[in-house]
């Protein structure tokens, strides 16, 4: 059953909520209990800026069943403008349009369907800034 885990991850997948260390300012995405930089346990919740830069990417040609109809598609590591790094599909473009260093916006899309009768799962993806 995916529902409990999916529900727990909504703040990150829908709203890009991160934890900012109250002591050293380290940005944890997803949030952590302990700051890996200074060991502090107190964080404030912040929303990441929904824009960033492609650090690296790959193009998937053979995907698992849930994504098989979408091939070829790109998955990249994006550094948001506030310095957090996350992995996301890069959509609405041909893979050859993607380059390291290009600017992207993070938007909400459907990530996958849980079979024919299960829930629809939504989360962030990246689109090139045009």
């Amino acid at each position: 059953m995916i529902v409990p885990r999916y529900t727990r991850e909504i703040p990150q997948r829908y709203r890009l909520e991160a934890g900012k260390c109250k002591k050293c300012g380290y940005l944890a995405f997803p949030p952590r209990v302990v700051c890996p930089e200074c060991g502090n346990r107190r964080f404030v919740t912040v929303r990441l800026k929904p824009a960033g830069t492609i650090l690296t990417y790959t193009v998937i040609h053979v995907a698992e069943d849930n994504f098989a109809a979408e091939t070829p598609f790109a998955v990249g590591v994006v550094e948001t403008d506030d310095g957090a790094r996350l992995t996301a599909q890069i959509v609405d473009c041909k893979p050859e349009e993607i380059e390291i260093g290009k600017r992207v916006n993070l938007i909400l899309r459907r990530i996958r369907k849980e079979g024919h009768a299960g829930i629809l799962q939504y989360g962030y993806k990246a689109v090139l800034q045009r």
Partner: peptide, 13 residues
């Protein structure tokens, strides 16, 4: 709509 777009994602944007 893209394969990952629906009424919800369009409404959100």
């Amino acid at each position: 709509p893209g394969m990952d777009e629906d009424t919800i994602t369009i409404s959100v944007q």
